[in-house]
Simulated scan of single mutants.
Amino acid sequence: MTAPSHVGPVSAAPTAVPAAPATPAPPSARNVPALLLALRRREFTGSVTVSSAPGGTIHLEHGLVSAVETPGAPTAETLLLKSRRVGEEEWASAETAVSVGRPADAPPAWGGDLGAALVAQGSIGAAELEAVCAAAAFDGAFALFLSPPGSWETAEAAPPARIALRPGIEPERLFEETARRTALLTRLWGPPGELARIRIRPAARADSGEPRIPVRYREILAASTGRRTARDLGFALGRGLFAVLLDLVRMDARHLLHREPAHRAPLAPSVAPRIPTSEPPPAATGPLPRRVRGRHGAGGSGGASGPGGSGGTGGLPTRSEGAAAGPDGPPNAHRAEHTARTGTTDQNEKSEKSAP
């Protein structure tokens, strides 16, 4: 292809630089799964921050989920360090190698690749690191599902996860695994959200030293203090939330656990000052009228007769009447009064029968 000929000298005007394409607005979606599917089609790289209880951050690289960080489940870093797969000195050495090798003009989304540094220095194998990162991502997505839904926000310039799975997980695969875990726990125990809130401690059978208890069960029992949930046990032992929940279900079937109430009473009374209300107190209406034991009438049904009254109870206090005490008497005073009246009536009946 020949270059076009120009008539006259070529102007020295600078060539216009094409404008950078505008960043498309985040897609609108009805929920987080629909949002992730839309971001996958766009091959979005960045993060989705979910605001809920506890919420978390979903990291995406070209639309694939590379990591899920949430306070509700241990991250890959926690799993590696707490389980002692990687020592703290080895971890610090990898962090130093990443920070020194980072280019000065690196963009915010530069990977750093702490996982590659751990593999390069021989702290962990590549296959094992991939398995741990995938387990942490699936576990984080499951923990986000257990929390009530909230709002979300996308960010393209967000820094990536410190250690991530590459190339990542398809969003559909994440949804399928979350649904499978939820269905399994629901079938074996019940709603997983309720199970995740239970605080446990060892039962008497576990304290008896049964030799057939597996080692992983013993570790859970040793870490159970009555104040820890499955999430707390996962962080303490370096295990995933779903794995701990599944072990708790099986341990509960063997009667190794004691469940603590979900809402415990406060240990001390409140010392907050009492603020009087502006409304006046209700006016006293006086004591409620008490029923008088009536005599048997011709119809055979006893009871107090009066305007609009009906017999049939024989003067016995109902449940609502028995629960209320007189305004000036101690609690259950009506029971003593009723006993006294009954005793007097019984004595009168005995005297009438013994009379000639």
Score class of each variant (00 low, 15 high):
residue 159 P to S: 08
residue 122 G to A: 02
residue 84 R to E: 15
residue 273 P to E: 10
residue 122 G to S: 08
residue 119 V to Y: 04
residue 121 Q to V: 06
residue 100 V to I: 10
residue 300 G to P: 06
residue 260 E to N: 03
residue 239 R to P: 01
residue 220 I to L: 13
residue 189 W to D: 08
residue 329 G to M: 12
residue 108 P to L: 08
residue 347 Q to T: 14
residue 66 S to K: 01
residue 93 S to R: 15
residue 328 D to W: 09
residue 269 P to F: 10
residue 24 P to N: 09
residue 211 P to S: 07
residue 306 G to C: 01
residue 141 A to D: 07
residue 324 A to W: 04
residue 340 A to C: 12
residue 180 R to S: 10
residue 146 L to C: 04
residue 129 L to F: 09
residue 319 R to A: 14
residue 244 V to C: 01
residue 94 A to R: 04
residue 39 L to D: 05
residue 71 P to N: 07
residue 302 G to D: 12
residue 267 L to H: 10
residue 200 I to S: 08
residue 100 V to K: 13
residue 352 E to L: 11
residue 113 D to M: 09
residue 260 E to P: 04
residue 199 R to P: 08
residue 73 A to P: 01
residue 109 A to I: 13
residue 34 A to I: 06
residue 89 E to S: 14
residue 306 G to A: 03
residue 181 R to K: 13
residue 284 A to K: 03
residue 180 R to N: 10
residue 3 A to L: 12
residue 284 A to D: 14
residue 64 L to R: 13
residue 68 V to Y: 00
residue 22 A to I: 12
residue 342 T to E: 11
residue 158 A to C: 03
residue 257 L to E: 00
residue 282 P to C: 02
residue 211 P to N: 07
residue 53 A to K: 06
residue 345 T to C: 09
residue 90 E to S: 15
residue 24 P to E: 05
residue 29 A to E: 05
